[in-house]
Amino acid sequence: MDRLLLHIFMHMNGQRSISGPVHILKGKRSSQTIQDIHLFRLHKWAGLLRHTSYGTLWEQAQRLRDQGFIEPISSTVDSVTQSGLDAESVSRKVFENVRLSGWKYEWEGHTDDCWRTLNLLIQTASHLKAGRKQFIPVYADTTAKQNVRSLFREASAEQIAEGLYEWLYRELLKRSRSDAELFTDSLSGPDRSGKTLGQMTSSGEVPFHTWLRFRSILHDLIESGGPESPECLNTLFKQWKQKKELTRSAEKTRELFMAGYDLQQIAAERRLKVSTIEDHFVEMAASDPEFPVDVYAAAELQREILQAASTSGGRLRDIRERIGEKADYFQIRLVLSSRTGKGGTAYL
C-alpha cells in the first residue's frame, strides 16, 4: 500500500507533501484534495481507500519516510529520493495497468453498494433456484438488503439468474482468466460459499494488488451497466453511475468535469456558452452533496453569501448588492443551490 502512495505522489510534480496522496486515497472532501485530483489527473485513485483508516494510511506514509524513499523539503513539500524512484519503478507497471475509476465509482461509495448488492443477489438467486429458502446471508448492509428485496419483488429468481448469467458471462469473457476466476471465487452459492480476498491471492501476488484487481473488475461491471446489463438492474445501475438526476446535457458536462476539465474547457469542448455550463454546475451542486463548491467560492465567501441570503430573503439581486464585487451571480447561485439541494454540502 505504501508503494501506491509513492506512485501517486510521483504524479504530483514535487509540489505536495505525502499527505496529498493520503487524502486523495481516503477521499477527503476538501477543495485542495479535489483540485489535486483534477490538476494531476488522479481520478483513477480518488477515494479508493476510503475504508482504510487514517491511522493506517499515515503509518504507510511514515514507512516511506523510514525507508528513505521520501524526504521533507519543507513542511508542505516532500521529495522522492533516488531509492524511492527505484522502489516506485518496481510496482509501477501494476499500478499503471490496473484500470480503475475511483472518482466515478468509489468517491460516493457506489462500488461497495454494487458489490454488496450483487453478492447477496447472486447468493439468494442461486439458493432459491436450488430450492433452498433458508441460508446464512453473505454480509450486506441495509441498502444492499433493500435493493435485493425490491429486486425479488419485481422479478423471479429464474429471470434474475438468467439476466445475471448472461451479463456476467459476457463481461468476464473480456477479462483475463485469473480476473474472471477472482470474481467467481468470491461469489457464494449453495454448494460453496465465497472466498475472502486473502484466500484468493495467487502465489507470488501482493494481496493489495489482488484487491486492486478486484476493485477494477467491479468498476468495469458498473461501467458496463446499461442496455447490456440485466433489465432488472437498470434502476440500480443508473444510481451507481450517477446518484443524482441531471438533465442529459448537464450529465455530459458532469462527465467532462469528472474527467478533469474546468468550466472554460468544457464550454470550449462542447461549443456551448459559458453561462450554459454555469447552469449545469449549479444543477450539479444542487443534486450532488459532494460537489466541490469551495473550488469556486472560498469558505469565507460562502458564509457571506449565506449570511446575505438569510437577511435579504434570498433574491439574487439583493444578495449581489450586499456582497458587492466579491462574488458574481454564478458564485452566488452555486452556493445557494448547494445549500438548498438535497443533502446540502459541507460549506463551513
Binding site: I122, A125, S126, K129, A130, A161, E162, L164, Y165, L168, Y169, L172, R177, A180, E181, F183, T184, D185, L187, G189, P190, D191, R192
Partner: peptide
C-alpha cells in the same frame, strides 16, 4: 468441495444449480 474447474463452470453452477 467439488472444485469446479474454471469460472465458466462456476457461473453455471451458481445460476443454474439444477
Amino acid at each position: 468441495s467439488n472444485e469446479e474447474t474454471g469460472w465458466e463452470n462456476r457461473l453455471i453452477q451458481l445460476f443454474y444449480p439444477e
